[in-house]
Write a protein that binds this DNA or RNA. Sequence first.
DNA 1: ATGAATGCAAAAACTTTGCATGACG
DNA 2: CGTCATGCAAAGTTTTTGCATTCAT
Lengths: 136, 136
Amino acid sequence: MENSDIKNAGLKVTLPRMKILELLESSDDRHLKAEDIFKMLLDSGEEIALATVYRVLTQFEAAGLVERHHFDGGHAVFELSDGTHHDHLVDIESGNVVEFYDEKIEHRQKEIARKYGFTITEHTMVLYGRFDKIDK
Amino acid sequence: MENSDIKNAGLKVTLPRMKILELLESSDDRHLKAEDIFKMLLDSGEEIALATVYRVLTQFEAAGLVERHHFDGGHAVFELSDGTHHDHLVDIESGNVVEFYDEKIEHRQKEIARKYGFTITEHTMVLYGRFDKIDK
DNA sequence: ATGAATGCAAAAACTTTGCATGACG
DNA sequence: CGTCATGCAAAGTTTTTGCATTCAT
């Protein structure tokens, strides 16, 4: 259960934290803005402040529970981290996000870092574009 | 000269636009925040408004003259586009940015897009980390 | 009980916009 | 000269912070 995740992060198990974590786990859309989360929680009858959402997400990020991404658009999106790294395809029309992982790219990134004498702590790759229409 | 760039973009050649373009061309740091540009111009004695910097950068971006990136940190950085695509190494301590281009990665990205039925219009790859200390 | 977490409101950081004035072609 | 661009200030967004109150342990 997710309570242990919160505890392991050295955080008290509070209602807001549980609700946010539950929402991130159950949401269809894995990539949510703070405001999305805030509104979804309000809609489901929770009492929560937007400031709390930001604070909790920042704590979860520090604990490695979630990842914060800055896709184009000037706002951050958060996703539950699943331990494994992955990159993103972002549909510039719908905003839909698809995750992918490619061993060749990961490997090549390491080679590049070595070439530049660079130690990677984190990396993001985002392909912006459109998913082909499936006209039938 | 850069005046033709501005004209080709369908924009009047005004002092603010020229100064911003000149600064982007001459700056040591190729990646600047709007506020950086604003302050640098003020420091060099120009009279300009921050709003103008944002407006001009947005126009330049639309014209393909500059690129806007959203690295981690909640603010956009702008760089003069040189026609060729490249990716970035960002030093998480100093904020220094190094550009690189890797044919293998570009090629692999296209393969991935094809696999997902995705048409890429743009893409960014950022490696965050540290440049190895060169202790002598 | 006591230290941490929350809610609220205010503020901060970044960016956009309305409008009167000024400059380009 | 007409139109487009600028400056200024105000407003919009997104995110952070201070403080009194509430909650978890």
